[in-house]
Write a protein that binds this DNA or RNA. Structure first.
Lengths: 146, 146
DNA sequence: CATTAACCCGATAAGATCTATCAATTTTAT
DNA sequence: ATAAAATTGATAGATCTTATCGGGTTAATG
């Protein structure tokens, strides 16, 4: 059970984007530098997120990316599904043919796992995470100024 | 997010073993044939399950495998952890060092996912599944005898 | 209108992991 | 003795993941 580096990078990058969300699009080079994510890899990810309808892109000088959907309405599940596909832990839970010899009670367990994962990951939005991290940052900074 | 074929094979195999659980150990060749699992691959899996304290092995003629812990007390999580390790979807949730630049709210999400998965997978025992499948089998058979 | 910042796209390489098989050995009931 | 069965270590083959490369396109700006 693993969430790919793609999804982990992407969630961190989107949180960063949400924190810098003004009227200007943000170039991926900025995000790459701040979050220490390989630039060309991040390009691939954001390209997928654009195709998934989560981001807008703007080409040319002063271009970059911005949210197409509000960060409040983009969940971690949306990101993971856009980049890695379903979180189903077994193909038989998403329609793939199962070994017919099984009168398969096991499938129910994988299905429960899937449902449970979806529930957790859809509960967390990018906006939530951005706000949480801003608060963490603030309180950490305060440590130095007591 | 994927559960390996190893774990899926193993759970199915253990359900089969639970259904045949008498005083005699069951050879893996039988289980392999009934569940259509590659024999030598299954050997590896059962060897791991033995090392994990879930199964007993008996060598020689009339040998085979039997449960060391009762099927009622072996959860799907136990099996998955024995074969694939932790179900943690991100290394940072199990002690691996995280990128220090992050004031990381994202980690909480992966941690919730892990907890939720563990909860679902530990709720299902091999004995539960064996019983369910026996009932399914019975009712399917009845279909033919109406 | 030339320059440059930035995204776009397809290919591919490097590495890791997963799945499976092979060959040889050891144990033990009969 | 023989045969049934687990044990062990090596390794092949396939697939997936993680990047990187190299060129292309778009558009703001002076």
């Amino acid at each position: 059970m693993n969430i790919s580096a793609k999804s982990k990078y992407a969630v961190r990058a989107l949180v960063e984007l949400a924190q810098h969300n003004g009227d200007q699009p943000v170039p991926i080079a900025d995000i790459s530098a701040r979050k220490d994510i390989p630039l060309q890899f991040l390009e691939q990810l954001f390209s997928s997120l654009r195709k998934a309808g989560i981001l807008n892109s703007h080409r040319g000088v002063r271009g970059g990316f911005s949210f197409k959907r509000l960060p409040e309405e983009v969940s971690v599940l949306d990101v993971v599904e856009a980049l890695d596909g379903s979180v189903a832990p077994a193909a038989c839970t998403v329609g793939a043919p199962c070994d017919k010899k099984d009168h398969c009670a096991v499938q129910d367990v994988w299905m429960d796992a899937k449902t449970s994962l979806e529930s957790v990951l859809s509960a967390a939005t990018i906006a939530d995470l951005a706000e949480k991290e801003s608060m963490m940052y603030t309180s950490t900074e305060e440590m130095y100024y007591i």
